[in-house]
Design a protein around this nucleic acid. Structure first.
Length: 274
DNA sequence: CTGTTGTGC
DNA sequence: GCACAACAG
């Protein structure tokens, strides 16, 4: 009997290991990979383009920037939500795994403390992800990390499940097609917006998403600016230039790109090349 | 996929 | 407060 004990133990250990791998509970390895992404990036891209780190992708901001394992954000305390989030979306982030939705938690990395999810309860508004949960399905840990109240804005359900969802799916399509895209998502925060909850979470009137694809020729950029309302229109009716979003937000996007490339890409409001 | 609400312990 | 199931676009 004894000769079976060790094989059984080894099998049990292996099974446990694979179980946690599959569940994506191995946050430690993910942390190593993704935090490295912020500071070091890769040696070189296969197509000869200059590798961009997540840090290089970050917009300018006077608000509180925090780095999570798989995305970064800038929290606006007045409006009790992020003014923008930034993440690198890779084809490998997109899987068909079915994770159980966790509860939204306060983001402890934001010093001023983020809003509580109760502000949204019975408000009539969705807890709309900025970094979509669907963009972070490589592991359970990555998925759960999107369920922080620093990563949501109040959204009308018909908008969130409608054209905004369509835009998120299109972004995932680009990530699969080009293997890797850089994504900045946010809203136009201004004074006198409607608020919800006891903490007065602002309800933005417009949301935007900027997608950048890198290549040896400077890459391509695509920006969408959408009114926060239900619509049957196409997402392509809401293409704008990054320059326009910079005007509205006062934020400088992709400042780390060489100026000649940045100026050209950010002036464009065309989906040509995508 | 994007979400909320109701029930029960 | 949390788990589970049902429901909606």
């Amino acid at each position: 009997m004894r000769k079976y004990i060790y094989p059984i133990i080894i099998l049990a250990c292996a099974a446990t290991y694979y179980f946690y791998q599959d569940n994506g509970s191995d946050a430690y390895s993910e942390e190593n990979i993704r935090l490295e992404e912020i500071t070091n990036g890769k040696e070189n891209n296969s197509d000869g383009s200059i590798p961009l780190t997540r840090k290089a992708l970050l917009p300018s901001s006077e608000n509180q920037i925090v780095h999570h394992h798989t995305y970064s954000l800038s929290y606006n305390e007045q409006h009790e939500q992020a003014e923008w989030t930034a993440h690198i979306l890779r084809a490998s982030d997109i899987t068909s795994r079915d994770y159980k939705r966790p509860y939204f938690e306060i983001d402890d990395k934001v010093k001023t403390k983020t809003a509580h999810w109760r502000n949204y309860k019975k408000s009539g508004y969705d807890r709309g992800h900025l970094v979509p949960a669907g963009d972070r399905k490589a592991t359970k840990a990555a998925y759960d990390e999107t369920f922080l109240t620093s990563n949501i804005s109040p959204q009308i359900h018909e908008f969130n499940a409608g054209i905004w969802n369509t835009l998120e799916q299109k972004t995932r399509y680009y990530a699969k097609r080009y293997d890797e895209v850089y994504v900045v998502t946010g809203s136009i925060l201004k004074k006198n917006l409607k608020t919800i909850g006891t903490e007065k979470v602002s309800v933005p009137e417009r949301f935007y998403k900027i997608i950048y694809r890198n290549d040896a020729n400077g890459g391509k950029m695509l920006a969408f600016l959408m009114p926060h309302k239900e619509t049957d229109a196409s997402i392509y009716d809401f293409i704008t230039s990054v320059d326009r979003i910079e005007e509205l937000t006062g934020t400088d996007f992709f400042a780390s790109l060489p100026d000649s490339i940045e100026d050209k890409l950010e002036a464009s409001s065309s989906s040509k090349g995508w």
